[in-house]
Amino acid sequence: MRKVILLLAIIFTVLAIVFSALPMDTLAFLPIGTALLFSLLLLKKSEYEQKRFPKSLLFICALCSVFVLGKTLFIKDKVEVDQKFELQKIETKEEAKKELEEIEGLE
């Protein structure tokens, strides 16, 4: 039973690290919470000599959660208007109007 919990704790801790590095905002808390749960279960199932690894997994999960929380609170997403694209849109509309007027003039 301990080996299964150990494997699940390792898998979810790796997923927590990956999700915290990706721009997924609070969705990263799902694997972090699951990894914390399995790490706590592993800590409870382990004997005194075996508690070093579950503690390190708990530390990694806590570090990931602090990182995700900091990213969520302190990094703001900004959307800027692309002036070149807006000018290109206007020019394209004007060209399309001219082409339609030329087509109508030919008929």
Rank of each mutant, 00 (worst) to 15 (best):
L37H: 08
L73I: 11
V18D: 05
E101W: 08
A62G: 13
P23S: 04
D25V: 06
A16F: 03
K45I: 12
L69G: 13
S20T: 14
L15W: 06
K3F: 14
V4G: 09
L73C: 04
V14R: 00
E95N: 15
E95Q: 14
S46P: 00
T34Q: 04
A16Y: 03
R2M: 11
L57K: 02
E95R: 15
I11H: 08
A16D: 06
I5P: 04
L36S: 05
K51W: 01
K98D: 15
F74D: 03
L69H: 08
K44A: 13
T34Y: 00
P23N: 07
K93S: 13
L6V: 05
L40I: 10
S56N: 13
L22C: 03
E91W: 06
L40H: 01
F67V: 06
V14C: 07
A16P: 01
L22P: 03
L41Y: 13
T34R: 02
L15T: 06
I5F: 10
L6G: 07
K44N: 12
Q88A: 14
T72E: 11
A9M: 02
S65D: 02
E104K: 12
K93I: 14
P23L: 01
I10H: 04
L63D: 08
D82R: 10
E80R: 11
K89Q: 12
Q88K: 13
A16L: 01
F29I: 06
G33Y: 07
L63T: 11
A9R: 06
V18Q: 04
L37T: 14
F74K: 07
